[in-house]
Design a protein around this nucleic acid. Sequence first.
DNA 1: GCTTGACAAATTGTTCAACAATTGACCAAT
DNA 2: ATTGGTCAATTGTTGAACAATTTGTCAAGC
Lengths: 232, 232
Amino acid sequence: MSDPQGLRIDRKSTSDQAAGALREQILQGQLRPGTPLQEVSLASVFGISRNTMREALRLLVYEGLVQHSPHRGAAVMTLTEGDVADIYGVRRLLELAAVNASRGAPIAEFERMGKLVEEMGPSSLARDWPRAVELDMRFHQYLVEFLKSERMSNLLQTTLAELRLALVLVDGADSDDAAATQVAEHRTIADLLARGRQGECAEVLLRHLNAAEAKLRAVVAVQPDASVVAGI
Amino acid sequence: MSDPQGLRIDRKSTSDQAAGALREQILQGQLRPGTPLQEVSLASVFGISRNTMREALRLLVYEGLVQHSPHRGAAVMTLTEGDVADIYGVRRLLELAAVNASRGAPIAEFERMGKLVEEMGPSSLARDWPRAVELDMRFHQYLVEFLKSERMSNLLQTTLAELRLALVLVDGADSDDAAATQVAEHRTIADLLARGRQGECAEVLLRHLNAAEAKLRAVVAVQPDASVVAGI
DNA sequence: GCTTGACAAATTGTTCAACAATTGACCAAT
DNA sequence: ATTGGTCAATTGTTGAACAATTTGTCAAGC
């Protein structure tokens, strides 16, 4: 009914579009972890039917971005410290394997990573934290594509999306510092990869991941307490 | 709060129950790959609403058991040879990592695998192919639990479920032979694991997986042609 | 004080009936 | 053989209704 004109090579169902919009709001941090997501209100916000909204929410539940309890409704997923540990276990497995798989890969693929790293420098200087996160994700996404596995790339995609639920809790204070070291480490990783020194690269990557895990575990370990305090 | 003893483990929504029933039919091979799954007819079969049936189908789509094209409907997923290769890539990554992670695990966990292997012997003699498949899956599921990762166990679960889509295409002829060697290999793997010889175990497991992959790739490489011939 | 139970309100779970949008097939015309 | 146009079938989406369940409130009872 809506959208009278316009070339609609839409190709996406209404529920997918709604899920996409909601996903964006969650990953941008506009909807913080724990925020309840009620079907009727959301449906009216997006101007769609409740049934369609339900489908959209189900999709995000599958992706791990939304929590659902029967008859109690949906809410933005809140990660526990255990979740973060689990997620980094997956990342170590995938990304270290990807480093090994990169031996003898076409040069173009290494160059792609190099160009991405160059893009990251300016953005961190501009203190565009969301963009820094975005480029960070893309870097690791590229890395895992060395595995040439649709399912593994998919897994990393959803896993990184979950991780962003914790990243939005990082306050801007240390983000500048974090972004700077991040870019440096990514550059090191990309260089070692392109030079075929996978062994050293794996070591650097492992430290890179472990450091990030420690920081994020600290973040989610503190945050839940605050909500408990606020609750009662 | 409520009844102490769970008389009603109903606890599952209608759509989940329908999805469970449909999943069972697919994995048992009663609904072969490519079979169209129409919302209205399925809904009437299960005696539920079309909307609820849609939710059930969406769940199976997410699990990779059902294919979906917009406005064209859903159908039982048909694996390509590439899919099988991809799936075995995931299995190698997960299961080989699990072998390494099993070092120093509690004895009880090794014993659990041993008992499972003992169960497998008689069932293969009884030529209960579905049960042999079921126990095979459980074996590898146990193995991956050495990783102590909820997400990785989940991944293997869905990955193995997808694989069963190809297993149902295996005709009973060579299944006896396959089951026998399977049990022997599982026994070897379990023994090597319990004795702490992870290195050798990894080799055996790798050959085990590669052999299975070769067989299944051959199966799915042949099957689709038949449908193409039948289609046109 | 603290539980207990009844009750009301709100939200989700599910059903139903309708209509819009898209696909695929069938058929005619060039 | 290709094009183009109906037509039926199926999916996509809507809106309204009702059932089931959770949650909060409040009074009664120990």
